[in-house]
Design a protein around this nucleic acid. Structure first.
Lengths: 118, 118
DNA sequence: TTTTTATACTTACTTTTGGTAAGTCAAAGA
DNA sequence: TCTTTGACTTACCAAAAGTAAGTATAAAAA
């Protein structure tokens, strides 16, 4: 049994906090479907993420080693992102969460309505 | 292939956003180890969550039907929380994320240090 | 030749969310 | 009568995220 009781000093919690983040998981999900993607592609694919937050999310994932960032020294700039081995290794986990959400969303939506009504 | 491009109108995204939240996942994780827990037990088990955020997280999970809240009409108050079937059904997914984080945290920490240094 | 366009970001500013600490309620015990 | 207990609220402040405009540079278009 692991220790969740300690905050920033616990590496597991630290990793977990970063990966259980709205945008981060989404970036991994869409990157999981495309092999290589450029910044604007990701931006369009996710749709409602701001450029700022996309940048932040990408940097965090890069720092953690889940994605690789390749810069082409051209103008206008070209940058490609792709999952690393570590990222690809993580993908199925978050993919299964996405699937679970898909399969259970109806029930969850119903539950929410019940809850509202009471 | 699912559509992630639309924001609040997409139920999958909606569910996903809520479940890929720092505190929410943690609450499910600790509830997964204890069967029934009272408010203050959860608070101590998680450690660095504020009472406010614990309340918010519990309400959201309750609304979505992942946990059940049982109030005992006594003074001082007594409230017990436990995973519902839906919650228990979700638990293994997040458990495996937690395990993945545990197994890969060393590599991730190393990656982060490399990144900082560059 | 000046203007526009393309791409991947920054930056300044505002809004929303989260954290902190103190307060509430009602009864039982000191 | 004052304190304690447990599950919250609430008011206030800090941090994070959203918004919109700006930056850099060269090639292509006007």
């Amino acid at each position: 049994m692991k220790d969740f009781s300690t905050s920033t000093n616990c590496p597991v919690r630290n990793v977990l906090d970063r990966l259980s983040d709205k945008w981060t998981t989404l970036v991994v999900l869409v990157l999981g479907e495309h092999e290589k993607m450029r910044f604007n592609e990701l931006h369009k694919a996710i749709g409602d993420i701001s450029e700022k937050m996309l940048t932040v999310s990408l940097r965090k994932l890069e720092a953690d080693g889940l994605i690789a960032r390749q810069v082409f020294p051209v103008i206008p700039p070209k940058v490609e992102y792709q999952l690393t081995d570590l990222g690809r290794n993580f993908l199925p986990l978050i993919d299964s969460i996405s699937n679970w959400a898909y399969q259970n969303m109806e029930e969850i939506m119903n539950n929410r309505q019940q809850y509202q009504a009471s």
